[in-house]
Design a protein around this nucleic acid. Structure first.
Length: 109
DNA sequence: GCTGTGACTTCGT
DNA sequence: CACGAAGCCACAG
């Protein structure tokens, strides 16, 4: 059995790519699904290559629904624009109705 | 091989 | 109830 550590990044991409339209998830949720609830930070770290993986990292936010990674997208309001483009209300980098748009990987996967 | 850092989470005051 | 600090795991240098 290969250590998940090697698949950790790949798994993060897999889950992130499976996020349905108009839905968002948290790093902890993905990490928890991968069995690495303690590595929530790594989830975002992996997202650094999300662009190369076609991963909608803009749909992934922290547990508070705050677009913490917005600064890593382009440095402006790109991430927020993308979320609003999907029907998600975002104010001050914070997702409104976060619980309403929250998507749990365990529910589908 | 060890140290540092990080798009987080959770406990504590 | 809100803010602050510590912890944890994994990758990069």
């Amino acid at each position: 059995m290969q250590p998940e550590t090697l698949n950790f990044f790949d798994k993060v991409y897999e889950v992130a790519k499976q996020i349905p339209y108009g839905r968002v998830t948290s790093y902890g949720a993905i990490a928890n699904y991968l069995g690495a609830s303690r590595s929530a930070r790594m989830v975002g770290y992996a997202m650094n290559g999300s662009v190369s993986k076609d991963v909608p990292a803009h749909r992934v936010v922290n547990r508070k629904g705050l677009l913490t990674g917005k600064h890593h997208f382009d440095g402006t309001n790109l991430m927020q624009q993308l979320l609003e483009s999907e029907g998600i209300k975002v104010v001050e980098n914070q997702i409104q109705n976060f619980e309403n748009v929250f998507w749990n990987p365990s529910e589908v996967l």
